[in-house]
Amino acid sequence: MTLHAHGLRAWLLQRMSALYMTGYTFFVLFLFSSASISDYQNWHSWMADPFFSLATTIFFAALLVHAWVGIRDVIMDYAHSSLLRFILLTATGLSLFSIGIWMLRVVILVVIK
């Protein structure tokens, strides 16, 4: 069986992204409970840190992939007409894609500042 078998790749992406986001959540909770954000400069320097900004960017990439698979499942369960399905899937995909670009822009502006 290859990864292109029906739904298996989506299933795997859903679980891998879930694992990463869980790890990131605990990491961030631990980080901010031991060193809280005191002010703007402090928060900005957190995000400008290469490791933290990379980990955060990967978090959002995982979030968008996870959301795509999840919302796709919901749409396919409830929208039975193929036209409606196409419209909803396209709208979801385009929104997630633009959100991804937007998030990258936010991180890049911080890192190059």
Partner: peptide
């Protein structure tokens, strides 16, 4: 899951404003 999905743009917006 659906509600959290709908909150993603607000999360990025907050991130943007805060930085």
């Amino acid at each position: 899951g659906v509600i959290l999905f709908m909150l993603i743009p607000f999360l990025i917006y907050i991130l943007e404003i805060s930085l």
